[in-house]
Design a protein around this nucleic acid. Sequence first.
DNA 1: TCCTTGATCAACTGATGTGTTGAATATAGG
DNA 2: CCTATATTCAACACATCAGTTGATCAAGGA
Lengths: 109, 109
Amino acid sequence: MTVDDDQLDRSFAALADPVRRAMIARLSRGPATVNELAEPFPITKQAVSRHIQVLEAAGLITRTRDGQRRPCHLVPAALEALTSWIDNYRLETERRFRRMEALLKENES
Amino acid sequence: MTVDDDQLDRSFAALADPVRRAMIARLSRGPATVNELAEPFPITKQAVSRHIQVLEAAGLITRTRDGQRRPCHLVPAALEALTSWIDNYRLETERRFRRMEALLKENES
DNA sequence: TCCTTGATCAACTGATGTGTTGAATATAGG
DNA sequence: CCTATATTCAACACATCAGTTGATCAAGGA
């Protein structure tokens, strides 16, 4: 999955909050409703509802309908898009470091 | 490399800005000074200087001294810490999806 | 239909973030 | 010493964000 710049903005901003990261961790173990996600936190359900909207706008989760409930589901492909963005630059940097080391070793011999 | 919650806050928040992401991309190709990093952007160097401080506080870059210059260097291990945090939950979710699929297939037979 | 539960909308507050301008600091070089 | 260059600090404006309370909407069950 490839993402545009706005999607990266929203995704990284979504992860830049401990409450939303804890929700991601919870959802990795299975779907959950607003009430279930709210349970561990000392904040109102309205606040939790908005955290969920942030995650959904980022594409990190989707929502289904189950009667009155609106269960949330993690979207692994969206997470994968972030890691591949980061890995791109990490790997490039590590390659450069290895080339530098090789050059140093060559010069000292 | 393992990071604490505050470090994750700062790192993801640092990446939630297109200017800082472009700086990461630039630095993956080699060290650069404030002036070099500022060049592509229509903002003041003071603003660029603060973007750099944000990246440094997140541990994503380090800085050295070269006369008046303060070159920035990307820290691949810090990027790796982020991808492994994300991958942890992505892989857990994908494992769960595969178990679900297996169960469905078993029940339909 | 009435009441309860799950979830969201609207308006407001305080904190944080990103940008500006202007002044200050530090190092290199004549 | 004096000046130019690289960078940072300080103070301010403006926008966005996370939280609150109170009202509203939607679906289920007696």
